[in-house]
């Protein structure tokens, strides 16, 4: 008999679908954190697969910093309309207006840290007991130790030293009132796996991932997109280049890659040959050696 085996992408897919279904089975009010980036788009695709022919039995949640690329927001609205899914958007600007957070000042000002408060407020407002996220363990050192089911206390905090052991594929989602879970179904995927899967499944992406001409400037070796609310230093000048996004986050901290890659195949080849990590272009991670760990403890994505 022919030997039965699945390739690595199908095995990862099976694992992720299993995790997503566990969430639907174990929690009362889950949500899927949708950012418009490729990881959350893949996660959403997996969720649709997990419940087909039924609709995804929980809403998406988008924390909008107000500094998003317009292309991301248009893509989000399109995708939700096409698939009949529902998406709740919560604005960091509202948190600033209510005085829940104070806007950072200076040239490196970013709303990246502020969105943690908006996120935790939204979780509380909707009584979500579980938030699915597109985090991957290969992204960053602190994420390498994250569990699939990550417990958060009533303050939304992550305690890396006191994580529940996670054995086999048995996931313990039990919790006390007021606590919640973050669940990361694509924990075991790498950047290349994500792109290969996008190729294999013909998943649509925002145009920002493909080459386009854009006004950009260079800060500390990273190309950043220019936008009206960005403060330039004297030495920085805006120029037009052929770029694409390797990750999509806030305009203020999303590093751009000089690239002419126009198709998913081009991108796979580019990434297979690339020598800098994906988050190497993330300005928010450069703040300190343990920047991600600190943000995650506070309740970041």
């Amino acid at each position: 008999m022919e030997e039965l085996k699945v390739n690595h992408l199908r095995e990862l897919e099976s694992e992720s679908i299993f995790v997503i279904r566990e969430v639907a089975a174990q929690f009362e009010r889950p949500t899927l954190l949708f950012s418009g980036g490729k990881d959350s788009i893949v996660l959403f695709h997996l969720a649709r697969k997990a419940f087909w022919p039924a609709k995804v039995p929980f809403p998406m949640l988008h924390i909008d910093t107000g500094h998003n690329f317009q292309e991301t927001l248009d893509f989000r609205d399109d995708l939700m309309e096409k698939t009949g899914a529902s998406c709740i958007a919560r604005l960091v600007q509202d948190s600033i207006n209510n005085g829940r957070v104070v806007e950072e000042k200076g040239v490196n000002a970013s709303r990246n840290v502020l969105q943690t408060v908006t996120l935790l407020d939204a979780i509380e407002e909707h009584k979500f007991d579980c938030a699915l996220g597109g985090g991957r363990r290969d992204e960053e050192k602190a994420r390498a130790k994250e569990r699939f089911f990550s417990h958060r206390d009533e303050f939304g905090q992550w305690d890396p030293k006191n994580q529940r052991p996670e054995l086999w594929n048995i996931f313990n989602g039990r919790k006390l009132m007021g606590e919640h879970f973050r669940v990361f179904p694509i924990s075991n995927w790498t950047e290349l796996d994500v792109w290969q899967y996008i190729f294999m499944e013909s998943i649509e992406l925002p145009c920002l991932y493909f080459t386009h001409k854009r006004k950009v400037f260079k800060r500390d070796g990273v190309w950043l997109a220019w936008a009206p609310f960005i403060q330039l230093r004297d030495s920085e000048k805006v120029e037009v280049r052929d770029v694409r996004c390797r990750t999509i986050g806030d305009i203020t901290c999303t590093g751009l890659t000089l690239s002419t890659a126009n198709t998913v195949e081009d991108i796979i080849v580019e990434i297979a040959a690339t020598r800098v990590t994906e988050r190497g272009g993330r300005y928010d991670d450069k703040r300190s050696d343990a920047a991600m760990e600190d943000r995650k403890k506070e309740g970041y994505f």
Binding site: N7, H8, Q196, E265, I268, V269, A272
Partner: peptide, 14 residues
């Protein structure tokens, strides 16, 4: 399709 992309689609997971 370019050289390396299709080949890498058929790997085993260990």
């Amino acid at each position: 399709m370019t050289e390396s992309a299709p080949g890498y689609l058929d790997m085993e997971l260990m």
